[in-house]
Measured scan of single mutants.
Amino acid sequence: HNLTITQGKLFFHYNPKLCLSEIHKMEEVSGTKGRQERNDIALKTNGDQASCENELLKFSYIRTSFDKILLRWEPYWPPDFRDLLGFMLFYKEAPYQNVTEFDGQDACGSNSWTVVDIDPPLRSNDPKSQNHPGWLMRGLKPWTQYAIFVKTLVTFSDERRTYGAKSDIIYVQTDATNPSVPLDPISVSNSSSQIILKWKPPSDPNGNITHYLVFWERQAEDSELFELDYCLKGLKLPSRTWSPPFESEDSQKHNQSEYEDSAGECCSCPKTDSQILKELEESSFRKTFEDYLHNVVFVPRKTSSGTGAEDPRPSRKRRSLGDVGNVTVAVPTVAAFPNTSSTSVPTSPEEHRPFEKVVNKESLVISGLRHFTGYRIELQACNQDTPEERCSVAAYVSARTMPEAKADDIVGPVTHEIFENNVVHLMWQEPKEPNGLIVLYEVSYRRYGDEELHLCVSRKHFALERGCRLRGLSPGNYSVRIRATSLAGNGSWTEPTYFYVTDYLDVPSNIA
């Protein structure tokens, strides 16, 4: 807008934040220059609390790290170098490059900038070799853009010569660093050979998330399962459950009422301010606690030095998902009996873990797994792929695949051998790939016309006998059925096997 004052003059007093240069501009645009008398524009009460600059400061050096910015700028000295009290560095987070010096300023003089007072450097006698002032900004957020400017702080001049310097606002972004852990990993099994893994992005990506790394490792069953005799009275049979499938998407929606109208769909109840505040506090606490764990609990591995020492970490090797089922080394339970199943799973520490690289999504279907087997899954978020990966501390989750139908069934015939004193040795093959492992066998036998009897055969007993022995049988026709019990439950009964026990007292003698 054009402003013209045809008559009258300007009068400025007691404006401590208004620089004289701005008042002189007002004289020019209003056409009143030359009308004012000496005392109409006070030299001592206008701009006496402001830094009124008329020179431009330029930054000469900028260096960044993930949490620091090192700045240096060209030296500046007023005509009387004693008038320079120091520099004021202003900075704040700036997602967009549209910041002005006066953003967030209120009537009390406060604003949204963080201000650092910096002492002037030592003055050199040689004007050509003056030290460049600077400042190291610490405690910054990774991968965050900051708006920065600097200006001088000078003393009051009796001659009211307006001098000083100020830089333009520059924008500097800190470097990326390792992201925080992925949030809320959930693993479920939808079949006997697959596990579905879902997660949420890290709360602090500290860069642009480029991919996720998912490692999985087959877990050995508890050692007590191999040692305890679950045929003993009072000892509860062990059981394991597989990871249940995901709930429906509708039930997972946030901010939804727990109660549904019987007449149909209901609208979600909005969260109160107290609920939102509580969630923010919980989120802040979780982030602080995660940072504490990362800094205190997890110790970084030592990389190899120039002395030739090897990095103890196993090298990563990509495998196809079809090879995942046989990740671990199978060892027989008892070496003397080769027909026992290889369900003991000690994992070799030198073995390469299978892994998958996930790009542009937060889910993965891990296939080719062994049925009813526990897996430990390790999830890392990465925001750099080359020249070397920059990934987060791992988040861990466990899951067990679903049982395989008929995996616990005894394959092959049940054979028998009759000894003296009416002892019958029953023999059968253990299931080759049971659900988890076989903890015991149930032997059901009966003599024709009598009630059915049951015998429990422990895992250890089966390994020693290759089956079991029935003792003290009365003469007669017998039928026997056997079924295995694994961590997933009972298998199917075998087809009945028949044998006849004679009275050993009636056996004919070869003595003449």
Rank of each mutant, 00 (worst) to 15 (best):
E417Y: 03
T415V: 14
P403L: 09
Y230H: 03
F372A: 11
T347V: 03
G476V: 01
S284K: 13
Y292N: 08
M427R: 10
F372E: 03
N435G: 01
K236P: 12
G476I: 00
N295H: 04
Y448V: 08
L426S: 02
V457G: 00
P434E: 02
L235C: 08
E356P: 07
Y448W: 10
K278M: 06
T307D: 15
F337S: 06
I418V: 10
E389S: 10
K236A: 13
E451P: 12
V214D: 00
E362W: 14
E258R: 10
A405T: 13
R240E: 14
E281N: 05
A381K: 05
E279R: 12
I366S: 01
V299T: 07
T497A: 08
T497L: 11
F499N: 00
K406V: 14
L505I: 12
E217K: 14
S474Y: 13
G234A: 07
Y292S: 09
E249W: 08
E350K: 06
P496S: 10
Y230P: 06
D506R: 14
F337C: 07
D222G: 08
C269N: 10
S342G: 04
D506L: 11
R459C: 15
T415G: 05
K253P: 04
S342T: 15
E388R: 08
L505Q: 07
C391N: 01
M402T: 06
E404W: 07
P338Y: 11
R400D: 05
H371E: 06
R319W: 06
R301M: 08
P434V: 10
V214W: 00
N295T: 08
S367G: 09
G306L: 07
D250I: 15
H461A: 09
K460D: 05
L225W: 13
P403S: 07
K236L: 11
K278P: 12
A335L: 13
F462R: 07
R481D: 00
Y259N: 11
N383D: 04
R316V: 06
C231M: 02
E356S: 07
H294N: 03
V397S: 11
V423M: 06
D311F: 15
G467E: 02
V345F: 05
F226D: 04
E362N: 07
P314L: 06
I366N: 00
D250W: 08
D250R: 09
P387A: 10
P403K: 11
R400F: 12
L437S: 01
I209S: 08
K361H: 05
H371S: 13
G308S: 10
P354M: 13
E388L: 07
P475Y: 07
R286S: 08
H352S: 06
E282I: 13
E247T: 08
S257M: 05
G322N: 04
N477M: 06
E465P: 01
V365P: 09
P245N: 05
E389Q: 13
R218T: 13
N435S: 03
N206S: 06
G472F: 09
N490H: 00
R353N: 13
D408E: 01
D408A: 02
L453E: 04
S444F: 12
V345T: 07
P332N: 04
I438F: 02
H454V: 06
R447G: 03
V501S: 02
T303D: 14
E265A: 14
S348A: 14
R466Q: 04
P475L: 04
D222P: 06
